[in-house]
Computed example of a mutant assay.
Amino acid sequence: MLTYEPDESLAHRLDPRAKLAVQIGFAATALAHTTPRALIAFSVLTAVAMATARLSLRRTLVSYRLALVVLALAPLLAGVTVGPPWFDRLAAVASGLASYRVLLILLVSAAYVRSTPVRHSRAAIQRTIPGKPGQLLGVGVALVFRFLPVLRGDLRTIREAMAARLGTERSVVDRASTVGMLGVTRAFDRADRLSLALRARCFAWNPTLPALAFSRVDYPVLGLAVVLAVSAFY
């Protein structure tokens, strides 16, 4: 599971607001442009983003393995037709290019997650979006970043416990339903414990967040974000 890891990379030194702006601009222009030349440029930008965060491609792909399965199946399903010619190659290629764009967006997002502490993400959101909407969104993002790895760990524990009890010999439907029911039960239990912990720690909607300030290295990144956002309309 991808999480924040302390480091001294360039991406770690950037202001989270600049990184969020690049993510938004990259996603917007990547979804707007579908030509092979544009995809090559987006691939180069993705490689640069991963390099600045010192993010391992292999580890990232392993973390996204379930999403990769969906992205790989999408072109095959898109190409299947009810009648002759039974498989539409153009539709499969178009879906494959769309899947590749989504993969690039996921890789850029992974670079952000690895290089940005959760508290900094919350501070960036709440100081960009004023009022209660920003506070609500900031709290939601912070809880997702902290809660999702715990749920992933619970599901992994359930699967390992089933395997130790020869659960792998049961049918796929039986295994999926068991994991799903136990996973939902664990999720509700975790949510109750989280609610109790927040009350015990006097949860505040507007806590003292870390100070954020743009440095000289952030301004070229902001310029890149603007260029990416504008290029989505051309």
Rank of each mutant, 00 (worst) to 15 (best):
A161D: 11
Y100V: 08
Q135R: 12
L143I: 11
Q126K: 06
R119K: 10
G96S: 07
E169M: 07
F87T: 11
S115T: 06
T128D: 10
E169R: 02
G140V: 03
S121D: 12
G134W: 02
V113S: 06
L103V: 08
A98W: 00
R101N: 06
G140D: 15
D154W: 05
A142G: 07
T81P: 00
G134I: 02
F147D: 08
L137G: 10
D154N: 07
P85L: 02
L97T: 13
G134D: 08
G131D: 03
R152Q: 14
P85D: 15
I125W: 00
P85S: 09
Q126A: 14
F145P: 05
S121I: 00
P85W: 08
V118H: 01
G96T: 00
R156P: 01
V118G: 05
G134K: 05
P133R: 02
A124N: 09
V82I: 12
G96L: 00
M162K: 00
A92F: 09
V82N: 14
L151K: 03
A124S: 08
H120W: 03
R119S: 13
P84T: 15
L155K: 06
V141L: 10
G153C: 07
T128E: 08
I158Y: 05
S109I: 11
P149L: 02
F147P: 03
S99W: 09
R127E: 15
Q135P: 01
I105P: 04
A98V: 12
R159H: 03
R165N: 10
R152V: 15
M162F: 08
G96P: 01
A91K: 07
L148F: 15
V150G: 07
S95F: 04
G167P: 08
L136H: 04
I105W: 08
L137D: 12
I158N: 06
G138V: 01
A111Q: 03
R165S: 10
V113I: 15
G134S: 04
W86V: 03
V150A: 13
A142L: 05
L106T: 04
A91H: 06
A164Q: 01
V150F: 00
G138H: 00
L97G: 14
R156W: 08
R89F: 13
K132N: 12
A124H: 09
E169S: 12
R101E: 03
T81G: 09
L155I: 08
V118C: 04
G167Y: 08
T128W: 08
R156T: 14
G138M: 01
R101H: 12
R101T: 05
T116Q: 01
R122I: 11
P130G: 03
V102M: 12
P149F: 10
A163V: 09
